[in-house]
């Protein structure tokens, strides 16, 4: 369904309000990318998306929910455990759900 990202890239999927804001369902971004830089990267491309969408969305990487840290550089232990989005990963922006 979702096309495989080109070499050196990962896919980010935009659902619901994220898709409306970006007018895309999916796009490929350059990898690797530290997870803490994801929202900055998207904000650069889609001005205002952080306040409108990202701040009340969750994020998954390869179908697992992850905590998105603040954009500030971390040090010591935190830096060693930092999540890096890798080539070929599937990232998704998950706005508040509304099934039923």
């Amino acid at each position: 369904m979702t096309p495989k990202p080109p070499k050196g890239h990962f896919n980010v999927l935009y659902f619901a309000s994220a898709g409306s804001y970006t007018t895309k369902n999916v796009e490929a971004l350059p990898a690797p990318l530290p997870l803490r830089k994801l929202f900055d990267t998207l904000e650069e491309r889609y001005k205002g998306i952080r306040a409108s969408v990202l701040n009340h969305s969750l994020v998954t990487i390869n179908l697992a929910y992850v905590d998105v840290p603040d954009g500030e550089q971390q040090d010591g232990e935190a830096a060693e455990q930092e999540i890096i989005i890798q080539e070929g990963d599937e990232v998704a922006i998950i706005p508040p759900v509304s099934s039923g």
Binding site: H56, L58, P95, V97, G100
Partner: peptide, 27 residues
Amino acid sequence: VEVWKKEEFAHGGGVWRANRDGKRGQR
């Protein structure tokens, strides 16, 4: 469940609904 509902209004326009706040999908 990661499903989203969009309501299309009779007078035009649409809105993505959110079932609840403060939980999954809401930071």
